[in-house]
């Protein structure tokens, strides 16, 4: 299915270490135009670090990240600025600037990077706010909004420059089920209506299977499995199965064996 589509992001052998800890090791992955790719994995598996490499906030120790035909692992500040104008990012907390109103937040990229007329900017703000279902909110301050509204405003800001790719960092974390559904629907709508490529980092299994075209499972800094939602659901890998069913018993160990546990408890005691 995805063979004919164009590759927009290509990650090759991405490796990242913090001190002596290896966070990502040899992650390779292609992301195709117009698809919704979900990156999932347990806490600390490196999925946020992976996302930070895609937006150019971190540089890899080894490997390459190609986006729009440029290797952003080696791009300089000016090139990076141009690449960044072509994608949007929804942060976990929305990351709205709290000294500005909602409208000013959304208009900021337009005012800084374009020479659009102020009247047109107003219209664009209204359009984007309508798209995320927040008509008439432009004069409120971010502190007056609920968590879900902040995320939706953050999404409106992320798509204000009409990006080709939108990155989502845990878009549904901490939201109630209805709001989770709303955000999921927004993600799907944007992908369909505007042909935006979406990369979603999440561990909310409900939304993973609702929105994903393809799923990548990261585990301990490596790609464990890539596939369509059906392939992942019927995966034979016990780690994947434990993750999607949420069982406490399994290869992702939480409880240690009796002997290890005794050793751990007594390791600093001198007898």
């Amino acid at each position: 299915m995805s063979d004919k589509k164009e590759i927009v992001i290509s990650v090759k052998n991405l490796t990242k270490r913090f001190g002596s800890r290896t966070i990502l090791s040899e992650v390779s992955l292609d992301i195709y135009e117009g698809e919704t790719l979900v990156v999932m994995g347990g806490s600390g598996c490196g999925k946020s670090t992976f996302l930070r490499h895609l937006i150019g906030a971190l540089r890899p120790d080894e490997g390459e990240v190609w986006m729009f035909g440029k290797n952003i692992a080696k791009a300089d500040e000016m090139e990076m600025d141009e690449i960044r104008k072509q994608f949007g990012m929804l942060f976990q907390s929305g990351a709205l600037f709290d000294s500005m109103t909602v409208g000013e937040n959304i208009a900021l990229p337009l005012r800084e990077h374009t020479k659009l007329d102020e009247n047109i900017i107003r219209i664009v703000i209204k359009l984007k706010l309508d798209l995320v279902g927040l008509r008439g909110f432009e004069n409120l301050m971010p502190s007056q909004l609920s968590g879900g509204m902040k995320k939706r405003c953050g999404l409106a800001r992320a798509i204000v420059m009409d990006p080709k790719i939108v990155f989502y960092d845990e878009p549904t974390a901490g939201l109630d089920p209805v709001m989770t559904g709303v955000i999921d629907k927004l993600t799907m709508d944007l992908t369909k209506k505007l042909n935006i490529t979406s990369v979603v980092v999440t561990h909310d299994m409900g939304s993973v299977f609702r929105i994903a075209n393809r799923i990548v499972m990261l585990h301990e800094g490596r790609v464990l499995e890539i596939g369509t939602p059906d392939e992942i659901r019927h995966s034979k890998n016990p780690i994947v199965q434990q993750f999607i069913t949420g069982g406490a018993e399994g290869p992702i160990s939480f409880v240690q064996s009796g002997e290890d546990y005794l050793e751990h408890l007594t390791e600093e005691i001198e007898i």
Binding site: E82, K85, F87, F91, Q92, A95, F97, D98, R157
Partner: peptide, 21 residues
């Protein structure tokens, strides 16, 4: 206080992804 709050709430990173230094 203002800038560090922006830093810990990802606002600085948001500025960078909007191509604002």
């Amino acid at each position: 206080a203002e800038i560090s709050t922006m830093k810990v709430t990802e606002q600085i990173e948001a500025l960078e992804t909007l191509s604002l230094n």
